[in-house]
Amino acid sequence: MNVVLSIAKTTTGEAIRRRVLMVILLIGLVLLVVAPGMEALSARQSTTVLRSLTLGVIQLTSAVIAIVLTVYLIPNEIERRTIYTILSKPVQRWQFLVGKYLGAVAALALMVAMMTATMLIVFSVVGKLTLGSDMVDLAKVPLMFFVQMSLLAAVAVFFSTFVSPIVNFFLSGGVYLLGSVFSSLFEVLSNNKELPAMVQAGARLVHSIVPNFQMFNVQNSAINAGPVIQNEQLYYLGSFGYALVYVMILLIAGILVFDRREV
């Protein structure tokens, strides 16, 4: 386990110093700070718009960071030949892969935490937030984004065991879109009785295979006043569990591929 943690720690240290990630993060943070300026957009629902914008920025930024961060995790190691110095040590390949993944997730956590903190500070300053439960409710959204992005990172790590970074970028991005943006579309298609059975089955297949990213999106309750959330703890527990199991699936599959991979 020490080996995994060592690799993770090194990966995190490296990730948070990568210039391209810093630039993306900086853009995200700047957008978060200027977001209250968008208040003019709507009179009564300014809070709604501000929250929507802010959480959207956090989601988009962390998704881009998650993908950019992870698609280069292994290719960079190979390019610099550091992977050979590591794999020629008593390090199992799974340890390397898991270490890399955990390191990336830790870096992701740091960056999402930074954005969340910025959001909460900005909201407090412009008076759109009261200390206490409102703050906690709002912070739950980026927390779930983080869980979502951890799953996305696992997708990218899995792909990175057999495709090149550029292909991986689009592949992982595509899977993310399928699992979040178009998830409901596929769900609708799979339930549309008017469509040919083949199309329905195909849509159902996509809907059930692709990780259900949209399930981690809880911003709706933070943006809009809504009904009381039922079984909230069960939901959070369940979605964490889902993410954990799916990450395991992707990592095991990744290990099986990477184990045979000639680097």
Partner: peptide, 17 residues
């Protein structure tokens, strides 16, 4: 994963969709 998804997704749909 399929099992958890089947259990949690309706919760999400009800509360957060």
């Amino acid at each position: 994963a399929a099992g958890i998804n089947g259990a949690v997704y309706p919760l999400w749909k009800k509360n957060f969709a």
